[in-house]
Design a protein around this nucleic acid. Structure first.
Lengths: 162, 162
DNA sequence: TACGGATATTTGCGTTAACAGATATCTACA
DNA sequence: TGTAGATATCTGTTAACGCAAATATCCGTA
C-alpha cells in the first residue's frame, strides 16, 4: 500500500483537525472577553496555582511557550491590568506572575461560557463511558509525549530523586 | 464546585497537551528533512489529491490557513523546488499548486520515519479496539466542529443541494 | 455586448512567537 | 571570601500568519 494512505496518517490528521476545530470554536467567546487563547490559558493556570501565581519559568513550562514568549504575554496581561509581577523574595532573579482582582474576575466571567462551548462541541458529544475511555487514551499518550508538565505545582518543585 | 476545576477544562487541556506533545515529537524528523509542520502537511495534501495538485483556495480550506498564508507557504515550497504553480486553464483567476518530482521524493523519503513516530507515540500505544474507539470519538467531534474539510476532493466540488 | 457583484490570488502592514545574546543573581567549591 | 558555572528574566532580531486592500477574472443579467 502507498504509505501516503497509511491509516496512521489519517489518525494523526484527525487528531490535529479536531484540536484545531475545537480551538476555533472556543475562540469567539474568548476574544469577546478580550482574551487570546494564550491569554486565557495563562490566566487559567495562574488561577489554578497556589497563591494564584507562578514563576515565569514555570509558566513557560506549563504553557509550552519559550521564556521570552512568556515575558511578552505577561507584559500584555500586565498592561491590561489582569496580571501583576511580584518579586520573589527567596530568589531575586525570579519574579512571579500573579492574578489581579481584575484578572480573576475576567476569568470567572468567561469560564461559564467557555465550559458551555466545551460541553457542546466536545464532552457533551460522547456518552459517559465513551468519554472516559477517550480521556484514558489521551492520558496514555500524554504520559509518553509529555513526561513532566506540572512545573510549579508544588510537588514537582522538589528535586527528582537520583 | 469552583468552575476553575471543572473536569471539562481538564479534558480540553489534555487534548491540547497531547496534540502539542505529538507535534513536538514529530518535529525532529520533519525538520531534519528541511520541512516545517505546515510544509509537510501541504506536500502530503497535494500528494493525496488527484493529479497531485490543488487550487490555492482548496489548499487553504484543507490546511486551515488563510489564502494569503497559503500564498507564502507555496512561495517557499516553490523556491525550494518542491512545488510548482500551474495555471488553471478553466479559470484563469485560479492556479494550482502541484507537487514536483523533488517534492514527491522528499515526501516519500520522510513518510516512513514519520509513520514510525506516529506508531511509537500514538497509535502503537493503544490496543486495536481502544484505538478504534478513540478514532470514532474523534470523528464524532470532527463532524461537529469542522463540517466541511475536504475541499478539492472532487466529490465536494459539486454544489450543495439547496 | 456591457455592467455589477462575486471569486482567486497576491501584496502591504501589524501582531506574535522563537532564537540568541545580555544582564543579574544564585550555588557549589576551593 | 572569591570564582566559575548555572539559572531567571529581559531585549533585539527574524520569520510566519491573519486581515484588509488591490488586481484580475468570472458569471448572471439586461
Amino acid at each position: 500500500m502507498n504509505p501516503i494512505d497509511d491509516p496512521r496518517l489519517t489518525a494523526m490528521g484527525l487528531l490535529a483537525e479536531v484540536h484545531a476545530g475545537l480551538v476555533a470554536r472556543m475562540q469567539p467567546v474568548l476574544s469577546t472577553a478580550g482574551l487570546s487563547e494564550i491569554d486565557f490559558e495563562t490566566l487559567l493556570r495562574l488561577g489554578r496555582s497556589p497563591g494564584e501565581r507562578l514563576r515565569m519559568t514555570d509558566l513557560a513550562a506549563q504553557t509550552g511557550l519559550s521564556t521570552s514568549g512568556v515575558t511578552r504575554v505577561v507584559d500584555r496581561l500586565e498592561r491590561d491590568g489582569l496580571v501583576t509581577r511580584v518579586a520573589c523574595t527567596a530568589d531575586r532573579r525570579a519574579s512571579y506572575a500573579a492574578l489581579t482582582d481584575a484578572g480573576r474576575e475576567r476569568l470567572t466571567a468567561v469560564l461559564p461560557l467557555h465550559l458551555a462551548d466545551i460541553q457542546r462541541c466536545f464532552t457533551g458529544l460522547l456518552a459517559d463511558e465513551q468519554l472516559e475511555a477517550f480521556l484514558e487514551a489521551l492520558r496514555t499518550i500524554r504520559d509518553v509525549v509529555r513526561p513532566c508538565a506540572t512545573a510549579g505545582a508544588a510537588e514537582s518543585r522538589s528535586p527528582v530523586r537520583s
